[in-house]
Simulated assay, not measured.
Amino acid sequence: MPNTLSEAADLFYAAGNKMLAGDCDPYAEIWSEGDDISHLGPTGNLCTGRKAVFEQFTRESGMGFDGTLVADDRRFVESSDMGYMVCMERTSGMTRAGEALRIDIRATTIFRKEAGHWRVVHHHTDRF
Rank of each mutant, 00 (worst) to 15 (best):
M1E: 11
T4D: 06
T4K: 05
T4I: 08
E7V: 08
A8T: 03
A9R: 05
A9S: 13
A9D: 15
D10W: 10
L11G: 12
L11R: 10
Y13D: 07
Y13M: 06
A14V: 09
A15S: 08
A15H: 05
G16R: 05
G16M: 07
G16V: 01
G16T: 08
N17Q: 13
N17W: 00
K18N: 04
K18E: 05
K18H: 06
M19T: 09
L20I: 03
L20A: 07
L20N: 01
A21Q: 05
G22A: 11
D23R: 08
C24M: 12
D25L: 11
D25T: 15
P26E: 06
E29D: 15
E29I: 08
E29L: 15
W31K: 10
S32D: 02
S32W: 04
E33M: 13
E33Y: 07
G34S: 14
G34K: 13
G34E: 12
D35R: 09
I37T: 03
I37N: 02
S38I: 01
S38T: 02
H39S: 14
L40V: 01
G41K: 02
P42Q: 06
P42K: 00
T43E: 07
T43I: 05
N45C: 12
L46N: 04
L46W: 07
L46M: 11
G49W: 04
G49V: 05
G49Q: 06
R50D: 04
A52H: 03
A52R: 07
A52T: 07
F54P: 01
E55G: 06
Q56K: 04
F57K: 04
T58M: 10
T58G: 09
T58D: 14
R59I: 08
S61N: 03
G64H: 05
D66N: 15
G67C: 08
T68F: 09
T68C: 12
L69K: 05
L69F: 14
V70R: 12
V70P: 02
A71Y: 01
D73V: 12
R74A: 13
R75I: 10
R75V: 13
F76N: 01
E78L: 10
E78P: 03
E78K: 12
S79N: 09
S79C: 14
S79E: 11
S79V: 10
S79R: 11
S80Q: 12
M82K: 11
Y84R: 02
Y84F: 15
M85W: 01
V86I: 15
E89H: 10
R90V: 15
T91S: 12
S92I: 05
G93S: 01
G93P: 01
T95Q: 11
R96G: 08
A97R: 12
G98T: 06
G98R: 09
E99V: 14
A100W: 10
I103G: 02
I103M: 14
D104P: 04
I105F: 09
I105G: 06
I105S: 11
R106A: 10
R106H: 08
T108C: 14
I110T: 14
I110H: 07
F111P: 00
R112I: 02
K113R: 14
K113P: 00
E114L: 11
A115M: 08
A115C: 07
H117I: 11
H117M: 13
H117Q: 12
W118K: 08
W118T: 00
R119S: 00
V120H: 02
V120W: 00
V120T: 01
V120K: 05
V121M: 09
V121N: 04
H122N: 14
H123I: 07
H124C: 07
D126N: 11
R127H: 10
F128N: 15
